[in-house]
């Protein structure tokens, strides 16, 4: 346990020092404030519209950004240590591979969590201060749910990054694979699902299809954030399938946690197999 904290502490201070955390926080804050005020510009409105609309726009954005940032943050976690010669050295220390991996996970997770909290939290504060007659309880509920689920989504992709990093022999390979994972889950999966719908012309059992969404953590994440609003429940594209999904929010959260745990387990398995 102590070893996990030591590794996490080092990763966290790395994140502070190379200004990763500052950059992510700033990016999130600027984008969130921008979306809150100009998100409806396409429909001819400028200014804050509603909390559900803002969260929906923010969630679409975070679906792209969180996985990318998490993968960027951690793709070299293992292979980078090896290239620096420190992986072999660390493994001669009283430190297990599990502790090394969990330490990195906790450290990187804290960076992501803090940056998300600061970035999106400041947008929430700005809305609370600047917008008149906004419901504070809805604001706090929607934004805390959004911040927590975004962090959880980030954790899933951190775990993916460790799998790649434990597998790859070179940093550049890991970077390439990371991009591939991002492409697969953020872009290809939904398109493939839609294509499946069209090609099979509905011959697939309609009960089964919505469950396929649970195979993509980014879809689970969007379901979490789109649900629960009276007005915002109608999703677009594959999200429309979610209306047929007979599961509650809690199950969705649980699915995301399971994703993170399973992928982290996979990463540990790959790391354990890796030659020191």
């Amino acid at each position: 346990m102590k070893q996990i904290i030591h590794i996490a502490r080092k990763e966290f201070s790395d994140g502070l020092r190379n200004r990763w955390m500052l950059a992510i926080s700033l990016l999130f804050a600027v984008l969130a404030v921008g979306i809150a005020w100009f998100g409806a510009a396409a429909s001819g409105q400028v200014g804050f519209t509603s909390i559900p609309a803002t969260i929906a726009s923010l969630a679409s954005l975070a679906t792209f950004l969180m996985p990318l940032i998490a993968l960027l943050l951690a793709y070299d976690a293992i292979v980078g240590e090896e290239e620096g010669g420190t992986l072999m050295l660390l493994l001669t220390y009283p430190l297990t591979r599990r502790e090394l991996l969990l330490g990195k996970f906790v450290g990187h997770g804290c960076i992501l969590g803090m940056a998300t909290l600061i970035g999106f939290g400041s947008a929430a504060v700005a809305i609370a201060l600047l917008v008149q007659d906004v419901s504070y309880s809805t604001l706090v509920f929607a934004f805390s749910r959004f911040i927590f689920s975004s962090t959880l989504l980030g954790l899933v992709f951190l775990a993916f990054a460790y799998v790649l990093s434990s597998q790859a022999k070179e940093k550049t390979t890991a970077a390439g694979l990371a991009l591939g994972i991002w492409f697969l889950f953020v872009l290809v999966f939904d398109l493939a699902l839609l294509a499946l719908l069209v090609v099979t012309e509905g011959r697939i059992s309609p009960e089964l299809l919505p469950w396929l969404l649970l195979l993509n953590p980014t879809d689970i994440y969007r379901l979490i954030n789109l649900g629960g609003f009276e007005a915002g429940g109608q999703g677009l594209g594959v999200m429309a399938l979610a209306n047929d999904l007979p599961v509650g929010q809690l199950v969705l959260w649980l699915c995301l946690v399971v994703w993170a745990a399973v992928i982290l387990g996979l990463a540990h398995w790959r790391l354990a197999k890796r030659a020191a």
Partner: peptide, 29 residues
Amino acid sequence: RQQIGFLPENVMFYPQLTGRETLQHFARL
């Protein structure tokens, strides 16, 4: 392991840490 010291042939350490921070990190571990 606690009683073994090892100097690898080629180690770059962590470029962004100072010498003291590097040693402190390894001392904690």
